[in-house]
Nucleic acid binder design. Structure first.
Length: 209
DNA sequence: ACATTAAGTGATT
DNA sequence: AATCACTTAATGT
């Protein structure tokens, strides 16, 4: 499997071999759900390319963006769940076409003790994610929605590498767990401040917000 | 031309 | 900040 090139520097050779031997390569198209709430986790994913959006879903269909998983990262939730065969509390959807490696969770215990680089990798992704989650939490707890919206837009623009964002107010509202009317009003205010331009299903960011 | 969906807004809680 | 009710604008058929 030639895809693991990028890990040769990160992992020791034996581990790379083990990955090549046991991991399966999976492709997911944009918009497809990779993991749903309540699903039991059977494999640990490592994202090779594309972008995965991880959200919390509420009963009434509202969702809250938790974090994105970038290439060369894995999902921290998976590590914490899979060890004890718990079900997923989050939903993961492919934001762009994704290719990833799926590693059977049965190997995790063994790998953790056997390969120091694997343990490091796991710890690092958990630590990073924890950090990001704390940011999200204090945004929700301590910052006003308008600040959150601006951060969200910046994040989007960084992630898609474009100042043109193709989202409806409705979609944004649902990701920030609020309502469309509120988003419309906040965006309108941003537009009046000459910080964005609004179109139908599109938002153009001006300068650095 | 008409129906559907997105966005804007005032008033109320 | 949310909800309602209503308007206006854009888009698809």
């Amino acid at each position: 499997m030639e895809v693991v090139e990028q890990f040769k520097t990160l992992f020791e050779p034996e581990l790379v071999q083990a990955i090549e031997k046991y991991a399966t390569l999976i492709h997911v198209k944009e918009g497809e759900t990779i993991l749903d709430v309540g699903q039991i986790i059977r494999t640990v994913p490592i994202i090779l390319s594309g972008l995965v959006k991880v959200t919390r879903i509420e009963e009434d269909g509202k969702e809250l963006l938790l974090y994105y998983v970038n290439p060369n990262e894995s999902c921290a939730m998976t590590f914490t769940c899979c060890m004890q065969q718990h079900v997923s509390e989050v939903q993961a959807v492919a934001e762009e076409d994704v290719s990833m490696l799926a590693i059977p969770i049965g190997l995790m215990d063994e790998w953790l003790v056997k390969y120091p680089t694997w343990k490091n990798f796991v710890m690092k992704t958990i630590r990073n994610r924890f950090h990001e989650m704390i940011n999200v939490i204090d945004q929700i707890a301590f910052q006003k929605l308008d600040v959150r919206l601006v951060n969200y837009l910046k994040e989007k623009s960084k992630v898609t590498d474009s100042t043109l964002i193709n989202l409806s107010h409705e979609q944004i509202a649902s990701e920030l767990a609020t309502t469309r009317v509120v988003i419309s009003r906040l965006l309108k205010a941003l537009e009046n401040d000459k910080r964005v331009l609004l179109y139908r299903n599109q938002i153009k960011l001006l300068r650095d917000l």
